[in-house]
Design a protein around this nucleic acid. Structure first.
Length: 376
RNA sequence: GGGUAGGUUCCGGAGCGGUCAAACGGGGCAGACUGUAAAUCUGCUGGCUCACGCCUUCGCUGGUUCGAAUCCAGCCCUGCCCA
């Protein structure tokens, strides 16, 4: 299912290919986030056109609305949402963290109160797998608990152990309900937890690897931790993950962070940043992010950047600023398209650099120009 | 000409004797956003110091009062109604 095509001689960067029921994904890859089955503001054809090969959907949100039965009835999430390429579904574990005020964690699972109408709900490892099976995603994530940052070592250790027990239950459910082989089958990734402790990350990784899953993710990042802690979490987990399987850093990150994690051997990313910031008026450029709503772009008649996709290259910064101020939906669409294209293009450049054996210099060249808080 | 309702900080619009530099909304200006409860959220938005504080503002001019955007008088302007 995962083919390792090349490894950079100077760092851990890998060039790979995932073969999934709905197509292949060249890695390193970035997955746009489509929580509700839709990458916000964009038509699936546009997401495909900007170059995304795989997107992400969310179990928790699709469970609550419209419900897995309806999606199964429609022929699965691919048919229902009009996305023909590979699709990964998150397990709902992250909502345990992000909707923390409305939940209670037990051995059995997580008792939620629906954020929509307050209905009491119970999400268990088995239920998460069952829902994801109904959604028919190419990759389903095992149900995990994502601890907050910071958290005590005791909490992290207990949380990790729970995530492992839940992972075993997920695997058991899958083994009972789905055939273990077959090219069209759903694949399953485990999620390494352990917060900021190296030994806990190692323990979590080893316990999940014992389950012989199709891929492994590093979770518990993108929860407000400093960047150094984020990179450490990756470093503490990756050495214990099998080289022959894909590695996925969940919920990350900024362009420099993505390049840093690729150098550490990560193959797969997802992040709301390009789409959310787009809707909030921020465009990514090779010089760094620019806040288009600010006055400095009032008379800026240049395109967003020289690398802009033809679909957006014809629009000036001044015009897009005008669209934002006027509350026009096109502003959100143009920047969503542009930012995702920027991310996907960055991954393509990274892949080419790895193939050429020059990933380090590519990364350095990118960083030398990119200013995190850019103001021209 | 008569009657009537008003004129408030960029706009709309509260306030109707002190706790008013003046609610709230809009607009404007910044900032935040990392497995999406986010086309969202937060802050600032008279001047000077930008902390305390001080100064100048609520159509204009006078007056009452310890004290007025708030009460009184005159004037100017605007909407509506009647001639």
């Amino acid at each position: 299912m995962f083919e390792l095509l090349a490894t950079d001689p100077e760092c851990g960067a890998r060039r790979g290919r995932m073969s999934l029921p709905h197509g292949t994904v060249e890695t390193p890859a970035f997955m746009p986030v489509g929580t509700q089955g839709s990458v916000k503001t964009l038509h699936p054809a546009e997401v495909a056109e900007l170059g995304a090969e795989m997107i992400l959907g969310n179990t928790y949100h699709l469970w609550l609305r419209p419900g897995p039965e309806l999606i199964r009835e429609a022929g699965g999430l691919h048919c229902f949402a009009g996305w023909e390429r590979p699709l990964l579904t998150d397990s709902g574990g992250f909502q345990v963290w992000s909707l923390a005020r409305l939940r209670k964690i037990t051995e059995e699972g997580v008792r939620f109160q629906s954020h929509l109408d307050g209905t009491p709900l119970l999400l268990t490892p088995e239920r998460s797998m069952e829902i994801q099976a109904a959604l028919g995603s190419d990759v389903a994530m095992l149900f995990d608990e994502c601890p907050p940052y910071p958290c005590s070592r005791d909490y992290a250790a207990g949380s990790l152990a729970l995530t492992t027990r839940w992972a075993r239950r997920c695997k058991e459910w899958v083994d009972r309900h789905a055939p273990p082989s077959g090219t069209g089958r759903q694949h399953h990734f485990g999620i390494v937890q352990g917060s900021t402790w190296a030994d806990l990350r190692e323990q979590s990784a080893r316990e999940l690897v014992d389950l012989d899953l199709d891929g492994y993710a590093v979770g518990g990042v993108s929860v407000g931790e400093p960047e150094a802690a984020m990179l450490d979490a990756i470093d503490h987990a990756v050495p214990f993950l099998p080289a022959a399987k894909p590695r996925y850093a969940m919920g990350l990150g900024t362009p420099p962070q993505l390049l840093a994690m690729i150098a550490r051997g990560i193959d797969l990313f997802d992040c709301v940043m390009p789409t959310r910031l787009a809707r909030h008026g921020v465009a990514f450029t090779p010089d760094g992010p620019i806040h288009l709503k600010t006055r400095q772009f009032e008379h800026d008649h240049r395109p967003l950047c020289e690398a802009a996709h033809p679909h957006v290259a014809g629009f000036s910064r001044a015009f897009i600023r005008h669209l934002f101020r006027a509350g026009e939906i096109l502003a959100l669409r143009l920047l969503s398209f542009h930012n995702l294209h920027f991310y996907v293009r960055l991954m393509r450049q990274a892949r080419q650099a790895i193939e050429a054996g020059s990933y380090r210099s590519f990364q350095q060249e990118f960083l030398s120009r990119y200013t995190p808080n850019h103001s021209p």
